[in-house]
Design a protein around this nucleic acid. Structure first.
Lengths: 126, 126
DNA sequence: ATATCATGTCGATTCCAGTCTACATGATGG
DNA sequence: CCATCATGTAGACTGGAATCGACATGATAT
């Protein structure tokens, strides 16, 4: 039940995987794993991947999603209004809004002592 | 610098927030915080909120997003192919695919020993 | 100028999600 | 029916994210 050396050229955490892929696809074991890895690398390395990941990650927190949906309904909110809606501390609200701005989901407008936030593109919300 | 009792009816972590909102909106302090909390509650409590949150959370992991984007390109992948692409253990792949299925992003098809996955609605990807 | 106000930043804490190993399950083939 | 295979499940570990209190910053008004 040992693995032939030629199959171990590409290191994977699961030494049985090349055999499974070989049985599934019919390709020779040493070839199939790199094939999938290369395709994955192309996707992972693309700038769109990083961008999309940053967007969905910014929306993946309940309080940030709430803020975004409220902005969708109300158009504009200042930081303290987001704080009132979420019930969080102002420090945490500041943290969340910074992430949303960085991800390009929300724009920031400083007027006087207040900071107002708006959705950048409400059509792109998932 | 003490807070009037009538302002403390609704508990917020930040005792200064009602005053800030009063100055911002002109409404009386005791009224404005509940206003925002009620709007937030309506959004938070809606079934769409839970659904959207589940979707974005399912997509917010780099390996799951990779799997989804590969499915978008290739149409169909079996579990071990996802494992080859991500470089994860098969246990972790199983965990990720279960989340994607639960969130309604991916469909599962059992054929023989293998489980094949497809995108449910590729137009809804953010 | 100085006090007050709204918000940003830092450090520490807590908690959850991703990950693996080891074992279990369900299907297939001899 | 038993061995093998692909995958699911349980438990433990760990890194990172969310959160808050405390202090810092920039704007406003007195």
């Amino acid at each position: 039940m040992s693995i032939p050396v030629y199959m171990m050229a590409i290191t994977t955490p699961d030494p049985m995987l090349p055999r499974r892929l070989e049985r599934l696809t019919g390709n020779e074991a040493p070839n199939c794993v790199p094939l999938y890895l290369d395709r994955a690398k192309a996707v992972r390395g693309s700038p769109e991947f990083a961008e999309r990941l940053q967007r969905v990650r910014a929306l993946s927190d309940p309080n940030r999603l709430l803020a975004v949906l409220l902005l969708e309904r109300q158009g504009e909110l200042c930081a303290c209004e987001v704080q009132a809606a979420t019930g969080l501390s102002h420090a945490t609200v500041s943290h969340h809004m910074k992430l949303l701005v960085k991800a390009g989901i929300v724009s920031e407008d400083r007027r006087g002592k207040w900071r107002y936030y708006r959705l950048r593109d409400r059509s792109r919300l998932p």
